[in-house]
Design a protein around this nucleic acid. Structure first.
Length: 819
RNA sequence: GCGAGUGUGGUGGAAUCGGUAUACACAUCAGACUUAAAAUCUGACGGCCGCAAGGCUAUGCGGGUUCAAGUCCCGCCACUCGCACCA
């Protein structure tokens, strides 16, 4: 064995070995438990960044560990290949997106191979491949038939100068990123998925995801935003004006109505009220970031119109207000200024009446319009007042009584509302999967027949300006209607790229099946047992995937309810306390580190520097430290192997020092197993192995010293192999082992090595550490107490006091309470 | 504004179920080797007092519970993230 650690040679040899043995290809196997480990696939932007390295090293360590546990492990890799950056690059460098993307994939694949990740490359997929997106198109037609995909008008950012739709990130301060002209909102036809049909289940099933971070589940819960209330009608000139409220118990305190500026009633009132028309015009043009909206001044204007309260029969004014959202509920609200903060501010500002209808027991506060109270919205310990026959009830009592009355009168119904909106899946972009629809003047939107799929995206394109080239390609869009045979036009919109990433995890299970979207093998691998990726996908990607999985299930393609059993959200990689980014100029290129130190050093550092779910502060010095550890490990093994083959271990004959090292070996195995499997804290696992190495270094060259060291080195190499697989591959051979380390099971703990004759215990007096003592492992409680009281330093502290109590924590400490 | 999370040496972090705070590294300092430097090896390394033994003190701040609190509870402060007029 070479004395010098030569990472380049070692890593190349290990990677060649894996390649020639096809080491990571897997098939279905009913004799072993399956384990599907997946890291979020990358967008092929050009090169790997440190975030990728961290993400994929975590996934690889888990995969390799699970394999050593005897599981049938699938770990695939692929490319989230559609998206806007390819179009931007095309415009900038005049290279077609398909070519640019393919070149990036070649480069990044080579980098992933250099890092030694244990992927089954036979299952590699790229979402821009027609073999992939054809199934997405096929599935869309199925959803269309079920009514789960539909078309409606929706707003987009429109640049009049460039005659094109802009993505949100292409709008900078309200201006087009290309021509700096103002961007306007325009309504166009778009395709949607009815995710709201699954809102209830998506919410309820979050409770099943016990191995997901609570943070992610909370974010999804809030995003879905379920609320229970009543939808009720005020009478407006004989037609119902519908409002939604979660507080029907305060209905008798509703003193006016407020409608959104886009509401039909507002438009109607504006027809013969120029001042109002101007107000509406101004307010609909204000297009600010959502963050500013919450703090924006609340403005409104009286329409002069009035509506009739459904229970009191009183006439209430209708106002237009800038804070009412057209997109939630019915775009109109009943205003209860006595018990809603916004309504209160609005009523005070415009002099509208305020009626208190909820009182708090034991609070002698009497309402007047100039003061406000901290329990105005409480639902507990309150009583309804000023509400006629509903007086005297608590929140739920009034809620039910009023809801029942409205339902009996036919003026309202209980309703559950969601904040979640249907998912808009069409994009007016080129570099995406074509939506398989043909628009016919006679038949409307007709799906492309299955035998005509896929609708292939042309890849030989030229960009003129920013619009999609598809819209200038009659050879693409001119076609016949599959229904009537008449002249028709193909849809030129493409799918949102979240479509591809919502089901790729399932496709890896049968990536090479050309006759079906998913099959029995795909269902064998699903669901993903361990998913690893960035927290930035906590809502959209993970919610869409969960939705898609339920769609696939309802189509009979998978038999599970959820796609990802266990989720690990890895933290960001920071430099100088900030996220690495090109604009800040604080990036670190993984390639230069691999070239300098080797992949194992980079892998080791990224796993050692922080627990996986925390942010990781980059440190060039600490990378060198990781490299230094590998060099030391290599030297220790080289020195060990240079001598004669070690004698057989004779556990019974070991002296205390040798037994201590051997105990440390087996304690470390126990700890590292727990850190890898249950805790997923690889940093502490590495620290424990480093400690063991420090202990092993103290052994000398006697027969049994060498035998103890041989056992420890075998364990160390096996335990580190998920994180630094190349060096461990080489060390395993150097230790004289002929089996491929990949096929060697995880080391077991020898319980007999863990026993001790004596234990060091801490002795406290009144909770403060005063002494340490060695006690026989089998000492009785009384003997331990006795020994503790005899310690010199302890006697000093209890000399002038009476011992009241002695607490013994077996094997750990004694606390003497004395006063 | 609402919600979630974090706060421990010079730095990254450890302390898993309330039980010996600062493991493992990085940096720094000292020593060995060297003509010298790098590399490598050995040692020191929270603060204060002390020759030492040892003592006092310390986990953002202030209280509390407990024999015992970085860990649990209450109230503040700072930072990070998410949502953001959802009626």
């Amino acid at each position: 064995m070479d004395e010098q650690y030569d990472p380049q040679a070692i890593e190349q040899a290990a990677q060649e070995h894996w390649l020639t043995h096809n080491s990571f290809a897997v098939q279905m196997d009913d004799t072993r438990e399956k384990f599907y480990c997946l890291s979020m696939f990358p967008y092929p932007s050009g090169k790997l960044h440190m975030g990728h390295v961290r993400n994929y090293t975590i996934g690889d360590a888990i995969s390799r560990y699970q394999r050593m546990q005897g599981r049938n492990v699938l770990q695939p890799m692929g490319w989230d290949a559609f998206g806007l950056p390819a179009e931007n690059a095309a415009i900038k460098h005049n290279v077609p997106p398909a070519k640019w993307t393919a070149e990036n994939i070649v480069e990044m694949r080579a980098q992933l191979r250099q890092l030694g990740f244990a992927y089954d490359w036979d299952r590699e997929i790229a979402t821009c491949d027609p073999d992939y997106y054809r199934w997405e198109q096929w599935f869309f037609t199925r959803l269309f038939d079920k009514g789960l995909a539909y078309k409606k008008q929706a707003e987009v950012n429109w640049c009049e100068t460039d005659q094109t739709v802009l993505a949100n990130e292409q709008v900078i301060d309200g201006l087009c990123w290309r021509c700096d002209n103002p961007v306007e909102r325009r309504e166009i036809d778009q395709w949607f998925f009815k995710i709201t049909d699954y809102a209830e289940e998506l919410l309820a099933d979050l409770d099943k995801l016990e191995h997901w971070p609570e943070r992610v589940r909370t974010m999804q819960r809030n995003w879905i935003g379920r609320s229970e209330g009543v939808e009720l009608d005020f009478d407006f000139n004989g037609t119902p004006l519908t409002v939604y409220t979660t507080r029907p118990d305060t209905l008798m305190g509703a003193t006016y109505l407020a409608v959104a500026v886009q509401h039909p009633v507002a438009k109607q009132a504006a027809a013969d009220n120029p001042a109002l028309a101007t107000f509406i015009e101004e307010q609909s043009r204000v297009k600010v970031a959502e963050a500013d909206m919450a703090t924006m001044e609340k403005l409104g204007m009286d329409t002069g119109l009035r509506a009739v309260h459904p229970l009191s029969g009183e006439s209430v004014p209708i106002w237009v207000a800038n804070f009412v959202l057209m997109s939630y509920g019915s775009g109109a609200v009943m205003s209860v200024p006595g018990h809603d903060e916004r309504d209160h501010a609005f009523a005070c500002k415009y002099g509208l009446p305020i009626v208190q209808v909820v009182d708090k027991a034991g609070d002698d506060y009497t309402y007047d319009a100039t003061t406000w109270h901290d329990w105005y919205a409480d639902k507990e310990g309150t009583t309804s007042i000023n509400s006629g026959e509903f007086d005297g009830r608590d929140f739920q009592g009034t809620f039910d009584a009023i809801a029942d009355r409205l339902e009996a009168l036919g003026r309202g119904t209980r309703k559950v509302n969601f904040r979640l909106r249907d998912w808009g899946v069409s994009r007016q972009r080129y570099w995406g999967a074509p939506i398989p629809i043909i628009n016919c003047e006679e038949c409307g939107s007709v799906t492309v027949p299955e035998e005509d799929l896929p609708v292939v995206l042309p890849t030989e394109v030229e960009f003129e300006g920013v619009g999609s080239p598809l819209k200038q390609m009659p050879e693409f869009y001119v076609t016949q209607c599959p229904n009537c045979g008449g002249a028709a036009e193909r849809e030129t919109d493409t799918f949102d790229t979240f479509m591809e990433s919502s089901w790729y995890y399932a496709r890896y299970g049968c990536a090479n099946n050309h006759s079906a979207m998913l099959d029995a093998e795909a269902d064998y691998w699903a669901p993903v047992d361990q998913y690893i990726g960035g927290i930035e996908h906590a809502i959209l990607h993970l919610l869409y995937s969960r939705f898609y999985h339920k769609l696939l299930r309802d189509e009979g393609l998978v038999s599970s309810d959820e796609p990802f059993t266990r989720l690990l959200t890895q933290g960001m990689v920071l430099k100088d306390g900030a996220k690495m980014s090109k604009s800040k100029g604080n990036t670190v290129d993984p390639q230069s580190l691999i070239d300098r130190f080797g992949a194992d050093t980079v892998r080791l550092f990224s796993m050692f520097a922080a627990p996986p779910d925390q942010s990781l502060e980059w440190s060039d010095e600490a990378v060198q430290g990781a490299n230094r550890f590998l060099k030391r490990l290599w030297k220790m093994a080289a020195a060990h192997c240079a001598g004669e083959a070690p004698a057989a271990l004779d556990a019974a004959s070991l002296d205390d020092r040798q037994r201590d090292v051997r105990r440390k070996t087996h304690e470390t195995i126990a700890k590292v197993s727990d850190d890898y499997g249950r805790r997923q804290t690889f940093n502490t696992a590495i620290a424990a192995v480093m400690e063991l190495c420090n202990e092993v270094g103290k052994l000398d060259e006697s027969d049994q010293d060498r035998a103890v060291r041989a056992e420890a080195l075998h364990a160390i190499v096996l335990m580190l192999s998920p994180i630094v697989p190349h060096i461990c591959h080489a060390l395993w051979q150097a230790l004289g082992e002929t089996d491929d380390i990949l096929n060697v099971p995880w080391p077991g703990v020898d319980e007999s090595a863990l026993t001790r004759d004596s234990i060091e215990m801490a002795v406290q007096v009144n909770g403060k550490l005063r002494a340490r003592m060695d006690v026989p492992a089998d000492a009785a409680r009384e003997a331990v107490e006795e020994l503790a009281l005899q310690q010199d330093n302890v006697r000093k502290f209890i000399a002038d006091a009476t011992v009241r109590k002695v607490i013994v924590v077996p094997g750990k400490l004694v606390n003497i309470v004395a006063k």
